[in-house]
Amino acid sequence: MFRDENIRDYNPVSTSSHYSPNQEAPPNAESIAVFKDVEKEYVIDKYKFKALKGASCKIPKGEMTFLFGPSGSGKTTFLNLLGLLDQPTAGEIYLMGEKVSDFNDNRAADFRSKNIGFIFQSFNLISVLSVLENVEFPLLHDNINRSERRERAEHYLEAVGLGELINRNIGEISGGQRQRVAIARALVTNPALVIADEPTANLDIRTSQEIVDLMTDMKSKFKTSFVICTHDETLINEGSRLIHIVDGLLQDTGGLK
């Protein structure tokens, strides 16, 4: 199997014009994800449309990586492939040293449940569950008893500053608080990678910055890699890794902001 050490040494040999951000990663940094000539083509009403055109990159482990680009540039497609929500039309994807691009549905689901957390633009919380229950929910995968589930969920809710609101219904909290719940839910399974797709798009500027700061804190606290997709450059923190994507191609941004 293609393990992490091999990934670290992997240097894409590509004649395509796109930039490979792995060149900017620190020499000793391990990669959480590697994209190798990944393409994604959609067919809409018999018309083919290429959303990703041979993307190759390495995403360093334990860092916050921003995926930046305008609407329709392929950011979400990139995240869907990174999160094993979709399969590439061509190319290979490696996550934590494992080739995941040809996983079947069940294997991909199992991999996601153990290794990947998601934060969505519209929070995507389950409306009939309370704040605490929403965070507990991903733990249903493992045979964890109820009290332990609660304990872990409370721990992460405390971490995102919602310790007082655990019994509230989702409808009773603000948008910013809902996104904090979503962050706690993404972290509760202790994943290696958290993927956030426009997590601040539905929030005001102040709350947006708070959410990004919170994710930065969580990254440091739980040693989790974050890949955040945004079209708002002002949210990108100092020292973060940056991948610029335009028209399905990864562009050189100089790596670190």
Partner: peptide, 10 residues
């Protein structure tokens, strides 16, 4: 979609 993304099987 959310539940499936969270890693739950069909």
């Amino acid at each position: 979609g959310t539940i499936r993304a969270l890693g739950f099987r069909r």
